[in-house]
């Protein structure tokens, strides 16, 4: 058990529609080890995001979605916990970064208020210490002017700045597990590169294990050691990233690599 931080066992999720249920996640199992960055790659609609939402129990229960299986965080099954206990875990032990930082931030509160709210929820700190921590987190995300950024509202910031703030917010309580769902998909490549770097750095400092969800194998190749390939709700391949890219064993993994559009090694 000591080698496993989060263990997903036989997780199945189906969205209940009119008539028949649509299985989105089809009995998958995987482990996340302490401190590692595990990639989860697949086409849109393959069940990547549903997996992350199911881990945090953020799916609306019946009649919305139906989930079964076990999600063991250091041996404790999150599926069996009541909502109040789950709320202690969300953001404190397991936190999540969403793709779209504009909708993830509240437009009517400034950055400082939103960061301090997360701190107040999970950590017993006096206001001055909370302020200092908020500033420090922004500095660690290499935000040049943390003081004025804390006073800014989301619409006043660029997409890259917003996502840096979301990452700071997700890691401010030093969670054990970070679920990053397409954290850089909406960003320019130059911004993506620096944010992926900062994300890895900060998660490493906090000792958080990361599940990095992406449709882009290039992003996975840059950030992960191990990777799961998902296709139609199932994990079709689980391998070390370099092995997967060098010799994919499932035909869908091969198709993903061929379609990545970045495998032309004539361009370096």
């Amino acid at each position: 058990m000591s080698d496993t931080l989060l263990s997903v066992r036989d997780l199945a999720v189906s969205y209940m529609g009119s008539g028949q249920d649509a299985p989105a996640v089809d009995h998958i199992s995987f482990d996340i080890r302490p401190g590692e960055t595990l990639g989860l790659v697949g086409q849109s609609g393959c069940g990547k995001s549903t997996t992350a939402l199911a881990i945090l129990r953020l799916l609306e229960g019946p009649p919305g979605a139906k989930a079964s299986g076990q999600i063991l965080l250091q041996g404790r099954d999150l599926m069996t916990l009541d909502e109040a206990t789950m709320n202690q875990i969300r953001g404190r032990e397991v936190s999540m970064i969403f793709q779209d930082p504009m909708t993830a931030l509240d437009p009517v509160f400034n950055v400082g208020q939103q960061l301090r709210q997360v701190i107040a929820r999970h950590r017993k700190l006096n206001p001055d210490a909370a302020d200092a921590l908020a500033t420090q987190m922004l500095e660690r995300m290499q935000i040049a002017d943390p003081e004025s950024t804390l006073r800014a509202y989301p619409h006043q910031l660029s997409g890259g700045m917003r996502q840096r703030i979301i990452i700071a917010m997700a890691l401010v309580c030093q969670p054990k597990v970070l679920l990053a769902d397409e954290p850089t998909t909406a960003l320019d490549v130059t911004t993506q590169a620096s944010i992926l770097q900062q994300l890895a750095q900060l998660a490493g400092d906090c000792g958080a294990a990361t599940l990095l969800i992406s449709h882009d194998l290039g992003v996975i190749a840059n950030n992960c050691d191990r990777c799961l390939v998902m296709y139609r709700g199932r994990i079709v391949e689980s391998a070390a990233v370099d092995d997967l890219l060098a010799s994919p064993s499932h035909h869908h993994s091969r198709a993903l690599i061929e379609n990545s559009g970045q495998n032309a090694d004539e361009y370096r």
Binding site: A193, A221, N223, Q262, N263
Partner: peptide, 24 residues
């Protein structure tokens, strides 16, 4: 050159190879 260096490549041995541009 910076734009090209920032494209993630789906190739083996790319761990931590991406380089971003400093600042905004």
């Amino acid at each position: 050159r910076a734009l090209l260096a920032a494209i993630p490549k789906a190739l083996p041995g790319q761990r931590n190879q991406l380089q971003g541009l400093p600042g905004e």
